[in-house]
Amino acid sequence: MIGLADQHICIERLLILQSIFEPLWSGCCSARSFAQILSSGNRELMRVIHDQAPGSLDELSRITGRTIPSLSRTLKTMATYDLVRMEPGHGRRVVPKVLHDRVTLELPLLDRRETKGGHA
């Protein structure tokens, strides 16, 4: 299990593994994409959202110093991973909410195919 507070070392290791085993990875959800979405900057953004509960992207922009378009892109990507949700606010505003306080990555290291005799 990887906690948000202490996973930066694990993510760096995943990036190293990704670069070593790059030819073996396929699919939409690689270790690289997982590491990118949970970068230290994005984890800090989720911490700010959780701790300061901004009422809009404008407020989050003021708190973080990031532009609204940049925040919007990042949060939309995080939402596709079910890490955040954009809830309706006052008027046309949206309010970012963090959905989880930790994530777990299950990453198979070996392809478990059955061999003769029914053993993996």
Rank of each mutant, 00 (worst) to 15 (best):
M1A: 14
I2F: 11
L4T: 06
I9P: 01
C10K: 12
C10Y: 12
L14E: 09
L15D: 07
I16Y: 14
I16R: 14
S19C: 06
F21I: 07
E22M: 13
W25Q: 15
S26A: 13
G27W: 13
A31N: 12
A31G: 15
R32P: 03
S33K: 15
F34R: 10
F34M: 14
A35I: 03
Q36G: 02
Q36L: 12
S40I: 15
S40E: 15
L45Q: 06
L45C: 03
M46T: 06
M46I: 04
I49D: 04
D51C: 11
Q52C: 09
A53R: 15
A53S: 14
A53Q: 14
G55R: 10
S56Y: 04
L57S: 03
L57R: 03
L60M: 01
R62P: 00
R62Q: 11
I63Y: 00
G65W: 00
T67Y: 01
I68D: 01
I68K: 11
I68V: 08
P69V: 09
P69S: 07
R73I: 08
T77S: 12
T77A: 13
M78G: 05
T80L: 12
T80S: 15
D82F: 06
L83A: 11
L83H: 06
V84S: 08
R85W: 01
G89F: 02
R92L: 08
V95T: 02
P96E: 06
L99Q: 07
L99H: 04
H100M: 04
D101R: 13
D101P: 02
R102E: 12
R102S: 14
V103Q: 08
T104S: 13
L107A: 08
L109K: 02
L109D: 01
R112L: 12
E114M: 07
T115N: 07
T115I: 07
G117M: 03
G118A: 10
